[in-house]
């Protein structure tokens, strides 16, 4: 009898623990989704390694999914250079990029260039053409010239420093 009562208590306790774990997991998933929508989630290490060797790790939400698909399926001819990576990595990064792509627009910028996209142009509307052409900046894709933490995927305005 005592054993049976103990078993019932144990089963109740087990069910409670499972419920608590599920609740905790849900909170985790929600906060992770929120973080992504604000693009605060740091990019995968592989994205930094493969893509940020030649340019900053561009934020995924700055291009629509269709543009990312086009870019990732033509890496051997990537804006004038061979940027090809192995098929497994290409697939994994393509999935991550399209999952985290723009939720504001599906319009693909010319040549799928992120720096010609509506979001990029809006965010940089206060930057004069004189400033872009400074030798210390030169290119709109040279994010690190002004975004001092861009190498790690952070483009916060707090880290902005315009070079002379």
């Amino acid at each position: 009898m005592d054993t049976q009562r103990y078993d019932i208590h144990a089963a109740r306790l087990a069910r409670l623990v499972v419920k608590l774990l599920i609740a905790a997991a849900n909170v985790g998933v929600t906060s992770s989704a929120l973080a992504e929508s604000g693009s605060r989630q740091p990019p995968p290490a592989k994205y930094i390694e493969e893509c940020a060797s030649c340019h900053a790790p561009f934020p995924a939400p700055m291009l629509p999914a269709a543009s990312w698909k086009a870019v990732m399926s033509s890496l051997d001819k990537h804006f004038g250079t061979d940027a090809s990576v192995d098929p497994t990595t290409t697939q994994a990064l393509s999935t991550w990029l399209t999952d985290n792509a723009s939720r504001r627009t599906t319009t693909r910028p010319p040549q799928d260039r992120l720096t010609l996209g509506a979001d990029f142009l809006r965010k940089h509307r206060e930057v004069s053409s004189n400033l872009w052409s400074r030798p210390s900046i030169r290119s709109a894709s040279n994010c690190a010239a002004c975004h001092t933490n861009s190498a790690h995927g952070s483009f916060s305005e707090h880290d902005l420093r315009i070079p002379k």
């Binding site: 995968p44 192995d86 990595t89 994994a92 991550w96 999952d99």
Partner: peptide, 19 residues
């Protein structure tokens, strides 16, 4: 949840390649 699984896949692929 689907998104979480995909994150795990990316993390796994990264670890496997590093290894």
């Amino acid at each position: 949840m689907k998104r979480l699984i995909r994150h795990l896949v990316v993390a796994y692929a990264t670890t496997a390649t590093i290894a």
